[in-house]
Design a protein around this nucleic acid. Structure first.
Ligand SMILES: [Mn+2]
Ligand SMILES: [Mn+2]
Ligand SMILES: [Mn+2]
Ligand SMILES: [Mn+2]
Lengths: 152, 152
DNA sequence: TTAATTTTGTAACCAAGGCTACATTTGCGT
DNA sequence: ACGCAAATGTAGCCTTGGTTACAAAATTAA
């Protein structure tokens, strides 16, 4: 067995998060984090297709701020996951599932940005923070954001 | 050269995010993501020290929902980064910098949870979402959250 | 004191997501 | 028709963060 456990010097604060439940929170957070890249990519592919007519590797690399190598390998994963269809040296197309995910993400992104903006946060900061926050907003929280937006 | 670029079929939507700026958003988001683990660990170490008297590898593993191996290697990184002091088979202690980071994170965590709760979001969901959101909340956004909380 | 159990450490593996360097393909301009 | 520059693909490297399996140390219990 290990060392005996030192007792806390001060009484523990009232807000005790049971370790098992807190572990669940972290698991959810990690799960969300694993989906961030997929969500940002399909969103970017949809955006690029809308503005440029098609999404190519080089555009995606510029948009994401990474090299084309990273884009290539990420696209391979997205293909395996069934979100995109790619053929060598051809433009990238979203599958039906990819389109659906992209629409969800675009809508959520817009909502999060608008919500932050409605709190008096600057356009730039709203965009910056939303890019990360959006991936951790549950349906319940998203609904609360929309509720507030409708109330102006 | 590559394929000629197909023109967009519909006129691009007004909200054109310049790729260079959007790339900056993604870079910030990735940067935040890289710090998530460090922040969650120092926060957990501070919590455990407060409630149990000390933070040990096994407690941290339970709290984070990972194996003790993952905890060990993460602690090695945190040590390199100057946030914790560890000795073999001994409890884990935060450095001065670690304490400072932990305090920041605990305060921000509390604020984010309280803010979500103030929107009518359930206790459980607020905790779940906050665990991820907190790492992407800039000082400006945090200030906006606090502002709203003071207004009740 | 000695044995059992828990805790801690370590070795080896994996996937994701970043990179540089180099090869191949493509399509435009001459 | 051809050559060249841009785009794309591929090989190989790195760090992070997860795992299982096994070894060693520490504390408790007998
Ligand atoms: Mn994003
Ligand atoms: Mn987005
Ligand atoms: Mn967190
Ligand atoms: Mn937290």
């Amino acid at each position: 067995m290990p060392r005996s456990r030192k007792q806390p010097l001060t009484t523990p604060p009232a807000e005790v998060r049971p370790p098992a439940q807190q572990a669940e929170n972290f698991r959810r957070s990690r799960c969300d984090r694993a989906l961030e890249v997929a969500q940002d990519y399909v969103e970017a592919i949809a955006d690029l297709t809308a503005t440029l007519g098609e999404a190519r590797v080089v555009d995606l690399a510029r948009q994401m701020g990474v090299t084309h190598v990273t884009v290539n390998r990420t696209l391979a994963r997205l293909k395996r996951a069934g979100f995109v269809n790619t053929k060598p040296y051809r433009a990238i197309f979203l599958t039906r599932a990819g389109h659906q995910l992209a629409d969800e993400c675009r809508q959520r992104h817009k909502t999060v940005v608008a919500f932050l903006h409605s709190l008096g946060i600057s356009e730039r900061t709203a965009e910056l923070d939303a890019e990360g926050i959006e991936h951790h907003v549950s349906p319940e929280t998203l609904a609360a954001f929309e509720r507030r937006l409708k109330q102006h």
